[in-house]
Amino acid sequence: MSDNVFVGAGQWLTDSAHWSGTDGVPARLLEHLGYTVLTVVIAAAIALPLGLWIGHTGRLRGLAVALTGSLRALPTLGLLTLVVLWVGIGLTGPILALVVLSVPPLLAGAYAGLESVDRHTIDAARGLGFTEWQVLTRVEIPLALPLIVGGFRSAVLQVVSTATVAAYIGLGGLGTYLIEGVQIRDYPMTLAGSLVVVVLALVLDAGFALAQRSAARS
């Protein structure tokens, strides 16, 4: 039985019919990546300035820690379904929920990154006559870069994973194969979709691992 599902998933993935059109793997993959990029860009526009400000000034740090911690307890499926009932079917609701979920890792990466910078280095920069803005942009951010990139890594993987769940509320993307497959008991399609998502997550994670390493070296 289980072997059949594997064989079925293999056949599903090698069937050229599943690689074209709006329900084909490339289209769904692009959709999935599109949502991920859109979400992370919006979340970064909120979280990065805030996180850098918290890290630079040391203010509101306790609030940021509590916020990132308590959001972990919030079930993503509950948030997604709730937002859709509030905002209505469409792109806004799911994207809003995904943004809420990807703010905490980005925020944590930014403020933890700045905190990891040696105080003496910052004081030395001030002693050399750097303005606060120069301290931030020329000393703190470059030194904090590996942790900031790490925040992006967590956020992107979180969104890729949650966007799969969001197919349930009609977001589309690669999760569609999983949700539809379970509903119509087409388990080979479910498995094929799952394998594509897993490969996507692994490739993105490896990419970010490399980016983090080069950020640490420069």
Binding site: M1, S2, V5, F6, A9, L157, V160, S161, T164, V165, G175, L178, G181, V182, Y187, T190, L191, G193, S194, L195, V197, V198, A201, L202, D205
Partner: peptide, 23 residues
Amino acid sequence: SILYTLPSLPLLTIIPVILGTSI
């Protein structure tokens, strides 16, 4: 840490195929 990057919903549908359990 690689295991932890695997998304939950896909993993929930892959494991039954490996274990031979009902979904």
